[in-house]
Design a binder for these strands. Structure first.
Lengths: 342, 342
DNA sequence: CTGAAAGCGCTTACAG
DNA sequence: CTGAAAGCGCTTACAG
């Protein structure tokens, strides 16, 4: 066959065994570091040298077929455009890599057909487990349950599911509200996420209990719901500004919405933070460069991704996983919060 | 074995064949839609029914081992936090799905060890091809070349490489500059991307030729380089503002930098667009909600991802691919551009 | 029109 | 301490 000078032919276990003068099984055991293999140091060295010389790489398909494991995990996120997931992905990729596994990240993207497509791939044994981040419909969760792949929800719980890893969103809310209270605010509104979102419900609950803890009453009209997008945040802010006694500070459930909040405040003629303080959950590079730079609560997103993958890998699929990742969480003070107008 | 009532045992080709009363090979051909298979309609129907009844899914590992194909492509991006890649990923995922393939997206993340890890996975035959988006070091490209996997660069070219799909960045720059010129600007600065980035060089070239085409001279000190981050954009803007005769408009090479540009202009006491107009390359939801809402040039990012994957899948690995995705590209006018101060 | 058979590249219990 | 052998679940040229 011409042309195979530049493209090296595939090297198999057999090739290594032949050249090293041992059986395939020995090579296999050396490659996999089988502790039960007792072999002369010299033989082991010769095998290793031959592996290096030929550039042998075990064939993943053959290995998977034999061991019934894919050495691959999957991670679904709703939307790559949401920067919150970048950190989660990073943590999960790191954890998978440390276990010698790959991570296949894909977006379910609200497009049901794509999720079905990937679940189909998974049904073919291409992944040994699945992380499922973000808010999806019950229908999709149903598909997930009916698949045979072990899975863990990330950053969300779901009714009747006992396999999830979440952040301590209540504590995040507490940090945010306390920051505003310490600046002297009393009329503190909350722009929450969608009511269907578990994270939104927990942040909302944290807001309510933090307000109560500070001895402040909550005007329920000061709680506006928005989806986790700039457009949603803008609409919610406009609504709050139209109220007879508008708040002096807003605690926003996420940074994407906060972008819209800042825009709407500006469009409404308010100066942030002079007329209105704004703080949001999740820190990211973008936040520090908004106009004005946004004060945030930094949450351990990367740690969340790492932990979720580790638990997926280490716990049996029928066992409950109900873990809350707490540290580190802290307020990052920038330009968008200040004492209320006198 | 207890407990296998809830978890269905794995169904194989053999199970289907036995139950349907045909040979494995017939089932295989039905599953794969082999056009050379001539079988009685009734037999085909019976096989299909049995497949459905048992919920048979072909085992990917066995299939890959036999056919030496993984039915999977890989996509590397430098950083999930950069929203530019979200659209590219979307396009590539769609295209892969339509071919019946999966897409494994991973970040090389500047962390060399992670790229090495994934190239290792690929070396095991886990992907049939690789898309490589964004700017990486020559070292990483070297690794890529030495791997046996077909690859295509996305949104970048590289010296000596003839397999890439890029956008018409020169045209994007032309649209941006023309928009500013039509508003009456003459002192138009450019905040370019890093000199090492191919996209940055093409946008810079487009800026220069558009300025020339408009009969405007370019003060080379009006070209500032920044990396594609808010912090970089802010620093570059501060530099431009310190000049004796600052520009009345800035064409920024990407939206992430533009976030920092708006921040720096605001911090410097300038009102956008009254004192300074700003336009940036690539449109995304965020842009419409910055303060002020950012005028952009929308580029066909999703189409770029789709096209790259299609070409990766359809062209032989030794063949050159040098495609420029052009349409659609358009200026999205928002609040950040206006005529220059009188 | 349908079936028998070889073989893809591994791993692993077992034999010696 | 090392090797022979079976088999994971498929696909495909070939025989009938």
């Amino acid at each position: 066959m011409p042309g195979n000078t530049s493209r090296p032919a595939k090297v198999t276990l057999n090739d290594v065994a032949t050249l090293a003068g041992v059986d395939r099984s020995v090579v296999s055991r050396v490659v996999n570091g089988d502790p039960k293999l007792s072999v002369r140091p010299e033989t082991r060295r010769r095998v290793q040298e031959t592996i290096d010389k030929l550039g042998y790489r075990p064939n993943a398909a053959a290995r998977s077929l034999r061991t019934a494991r894919a050495y691959m995990y999957g991670l679904f996120i709703p939307d790559f455009a949401n920067p919150v997931y970048a950190e989660i992905i990073k943590g999960a990729e790191r954890a998978a890599g440390q276990l010698g596994y790959g991570l296949m990240t894909a977006s379910s993207g609200g497009v049901r057909i794509r999720l079905a497509h990937y679940l189909d791939l998974l049904g073919q044994g291409r992944a040994d487990g699945l992380l499922f981040a973000g808010e999806e419909s019950g229908h999709e969760l149903e598909q997930l349950r009916s698949s045979k792949v072990p899975w863990v929800l990330v950053n969300r719980r779901s009714p009747g599911s006992h396999r999830y890893v979440i952040l301590d969103d209540e504590r995040g809310s507490l940090l945010a509200v306390d920051h505003l209270v310490s600046l002297g605010h009393r009329r503190i509104a909350h722009i929450a996420g969608p009511e269907s979102a578990d994270t939104a419900r927990r942040r909302r609950a944290g807001y309510l209990s933090a307000m109560q803890g500070a001895g402040l009453s909550v005007d329920l009209r000061h709680i506006a719901h928005a989806d986790y997008t700039p457009a949603g945040g803008a609409a919610a802010m406009e609504h709050l500004l139209s109220m007879p006694e508008p708040p002096t500070a807003v605690f926003v459930a996420n940074v994407a919405s906060a972008v819209g909040v800042l825009h709407a405040a500006h469009a409404g003629g308010l100066s942030v933070p002079r007329d209105l303080s704004v703080i949001a959950v999740h820190d990211m590079p973008l936040a520090g460069h908004l106009v004005p730079a946004l004060t945030t609560v930094r949450m351990p997103l990367e740690e969340l991704g790492r932990r979720a993958l580790e638990l997926l890998a280490s716990r049996p699929p029928e066992e409950d996983i109900t873990e809350v990742v707490t540290d580190p969480a802290e307020v990052v003070v920038r330009e968008s919060t200040a004492p209320p107008p006198a």
